[in-house]
């Protein structure tokens, strides 16, 4: 019995080397990279030629239309990803085999990599970039080119990606389907809150702060929600716990008991 299981196991391994879908991985990496290089190129060209005066007709052509397109696509993607993942969810989690579960953990890692790339481009690249764009234009509209990209494109993208990752885990991975992971909520909902916080930012800049001072207390809402990225620590601990349960027997260690919240 054991020998035959082992043989089956080896056969499956031969069919599917490793648990990672490399094609998906590289599609994610290439997709985010090339998309953002395109956006950066667009900023370079149309920021300077059409983005310096919000009252010019070309601004409406190149930036306001870009903005409206973003908004439509974002709502469509957000709804579609959530609906698709929910509709195709695994209804009987107990039927998920350990091998299948391991595959899904790796698939989930690719989702988290996508989230990492989205967070990087949004929170790091486009956010600090805004500081230098404000040295070239007077703060004339909330929809200045760097904001059209930063607030209304890159933040929604990481929100949608985080939402996708969370929903993937919730609908496919047994451990995340049976309760709601607190650190997962933190790492997805916290950075999401940066977008509503734009309301505070624009209110403040409209009514009393014209200059570009990054360290102004007006911006601390962004800071607070940025901390929530640390929720990744707890989330990874949860994943390690389950993977060690799955992997333990093959490594000759007894499955460790499920961890209890200690803090």
């Amino acid at each position: 019995m054991a020998a035959s299981s082992s043989a089956i196991s080896r056969a499956v391994t031969a069919e599917q080397p490793g648990f990672l879908n490399h094609r998906n991985l590289w599609l994610v990496v290439a997709g985010f990279t090339f998309f953002n290089l395109f956006v950066r190129w667009y900023e370079e060209v149309y920021g300077w030629s059409a983005g310096l005066d919000a009252f010019a007709p070309e601004f409406k052509t190149y930036w306001m239309n870009f903005l409206y397109t973003e908004w439509v696509l974002e709502i469509v993607f957000f709804s579609y990803i959530g609906a698709y993942l929910w509709k195709t969810r695994t209804r009987d989690m107990d039927a998920v085999t350990p091998r299948e579960e391991m595959h899904r953990h790796f698939h989930h890692f690719v989702w988290l990599l996508a989230y990492g790339m989205a967070i990087y481009w949004g929170a790091s690249f486009y956010t600090e970039q805004d500081g230098t764009w404000h040295q070239t234009v007077i703060r004339d509209t909330d929809f200045t080119p760097s904001h059209v990209i930063e607030f209304y494109m890159s933040y929604p993208i990481y929100i949608i990606t985080g939402w996708g990752a969370f929903m993937y885990a919730r609908t496919r991975i047994p451990m995340f389907s049976k309760g709601v992971s607190l650190p997962y909520l933190v790492v997805v909902v916290g950075p999401f809150m940066i977008l509503p916080n734009v309301g505070l930012n624009e209110w403040g800049h409209t009514f009393w702060w014209m200059e570009e001072l990054f360290v102004a207390p007006l911006h601390y809402g962004f800071v607070f929600f940025g901390w929530m990225a640390l929720g990744l620590c707890g989330l990874l601990s949860q994943i390690f716990e389950r993977i060690s349960e799955l992997a333990g027997p093959a490594l000759g260690t007894a499955p460790a008991p499920a961890s209890k919240a200690s803090y």
């Binding site: 890692f109 988290l112 990492g116 990087y120 790091s124 940025g226 640390l230 990744l232």
Partner: peptide, 11 residues
């Protein structure tokens, strides 16, 4: 991905 997520929040 941990590098990227921490980078975003920390930056």
């Amino acid at each position: 991905f941990a590098f990227l997520v921490f980078t975003g929040g920390f930056h």
